[in-house]
Design a binder for these strands. Structure first.
Length: 421
RNA sequence: GGAGGGGUGGCCGAGCGGACUAUGGCGGCGGUCUUGAAAACCGCUUUCGCGCAAGCGAACGUGGGUUCGAAUCCCACCCCCUCCGCCA
């Protein structure tokens, strides 16, 4: 959520940001509504002050004059009706504000699509195969560690089964990543609920605008998390953090659930895009002045995982049009997958500034007794599991279809090579 | 799921129709005293909105209602505790 004052005082900044993102939004209508709202609020508060004052006097009298009570009743009715109008306007205003995306940072490249993203660095080089590398779906089925048919039997398209060393590989990767981030990068591990209340989805920015990508339980109004970013953001919802506690670093493993309502058939092959996937997520709460440098460090923490796995990757800075709703600046990390010959997004690291902090009301006190300020929040995958599994299978495949396990991962997997069981 | 009890400021806890943003205590901060510290004593200790400001308004789990006026009375819901039932 943006500060309404920004719209009041510098609407051109908001309009400019929307144009850069390529989004439409009724900025004028919101400004108008805000003005009407304040006018009415002022009116109702003046009347309330009158009532409070008269009511206080009435309390002190003994005789309780009927005329005064009658006129106060009338005043009360007027206040009541105005209050309803004010509440209605507030609800409207809030709904608009909740649907307004974050303002891109000044150093975000302006662009219209993925082709305008900028590759900021690359690491490693694609392996040279003396044979034609296979895509992971073929490798996985030959090794009997991926089972697509039975996934569909159980749950339909975009579901799959990991079997034997496939499941072990994913589990090992999760433990491997969690260990790196907790032991070496200073993150505290959190195991959160996978279903959360509606307010949490609003706090993180997923509701009200992106309801159609979320799974929802009607009976109890639970929402399935599309990423651990949602529960992690809300860990400190409605809190004022004490001086000295920032920055806070959290890392969390969760399953993630997404409807992925896109063109049927897009990315359906393999395990690249399922309705359920695992992810290790990094999250930071920082002081506003520190969030830019913390984003760079966050990306570095995610890259570290790629490097230890020896996987070729590149870091891409997202242009304005590609930026997520809540983000003011973001980088993606993409691993090269030689079998399906594409760059796979294994991480997206964003600085959300105070956008989520405003929605979720997360503040901190810079000094004892100082006025609370909104924190900045950052999130990044560290990393998304199925895609790392894809890249690993495809990069480490051998001529006989077996998979070498990267050195660093061996303690977690227990074997040096994955072969057909 | 059933029965009973309860939700008040950072924490404990009083208030049960008007002077209550709210007694008191703890914790925290500042001061007096002291070579220093402790003790004792004194003072300060929520947040948001509107407004240039003075100031005004709002919040006692949440939402409704009664009333000139609600932390206080009524209704619904949520959460916590205890007991029972069920359960990985």
């Amino acid at each position: 959520m943006l500060d309404i004052r920004l719209l009041r005082e510098n609407p051109e900044i908001v309009r400019d940001a929307l144009a850069k993102r390529g989004e439409d939004f009724p900025v004028e209508r919101v400004i108008e509504l805000d003005m009407e709202h304040r006018k009415l609020l002022h009116e109702v508060e003046t009347l309330r002050a009158q009532r409070n004052e008269a009511s206080k006097r009435l309390g002190k009298t003994v005789e309780k004059p009927a005329g005064l009570i009658a006129s106060l009743r009338q005043l009360g009715e007027r206040i009541d009706s105005l209050e309803r109008q004010v509440a209605e306007m507030e609800a409207q205003l809030e709904d608009y504000l909740l649907r307004l995306p974050n303002i891109p940072a000044d150093d975000v490249p302006v662009g219209k699509g993925a082709e305008d993203n900028i590759v900021v660095r690359s690491w490693g080089s694609p392996p040279n195969f003396p044979f034609t590398p296979l895509p992971h779906w073929e490798l996985g089925e030959r090794l009997n560690i991926l089972d697509f048919q039975r996934g569909v039997k159980l749950s339909g398209s975009r579901f799959y089964i990991l079997r034997g060393m496939g499941a072990r590989l994913q589990r090992g990767l999760i433990a491997f990543m969690l260990d790196i981030h907790t032991k070496e990068h200073g993150y505290t591990e959190i195991y959160p609920p996978f279903m959360v209340k509606r307010e949490c989805m609003v706090g993180s920015g997923n509701l009200p605008k992106f309801a159609d990508n979320l799974y929802h339980d009607d009976e109890d109004d639970f929402w399935f998390v599309p990423t651990a970013e949602v529960p992690l953001t809300n860990l400190h919802r409605d809190e004022i953090l004490s001086p000295g506690v920032l920055p806070i670093y959290y890392v969390s493993y969760t399953a993630c659930f997404r409807r992925e309502k896109m063109a049927a058939g897009k990315d359906t092959r393999g395990i690249k895009r399922g309705h359920q996937f695992d992810k290790v997520e990094l999250y930071k709460f920082t002081e506003p002045e520190k969030s830019d440098e913390e984003l760079e460090k966050l990306v570095g923490d995610a890259e570290d995982v790629c490097q230890r796995l020896g996987m070729p990757y590149r870091v891409v800075q997202l242009c304005t049009a590609e930026l997520g709703f809540a983000a003011r600046k973001a980088y993606d990390i993409e691993m090269w997958a030689p079998g399906c010959a594409e760059w796979l997004e294994v991480s997206s690291c964003s600085n959300c500034g105070d956008f989520q902090a405003r929605r979720a009301n997360i503040r901190y006190r810079p000094e004892p007794k100082a006025k609370p300020r909104f924190v900045h929040t950052l999130n990044g995958s560290g990393l998304a599991l199925p895609r790392v599994v894809i890249a690993l299978l495809e990069n480490y495949q051998q001529a006989d279809g077996s998979i070498r396990v990267p050195e660093a991962l061996r303690p977690y997997i227990g074997v040096d090579v994955i072969t057909r069981q």
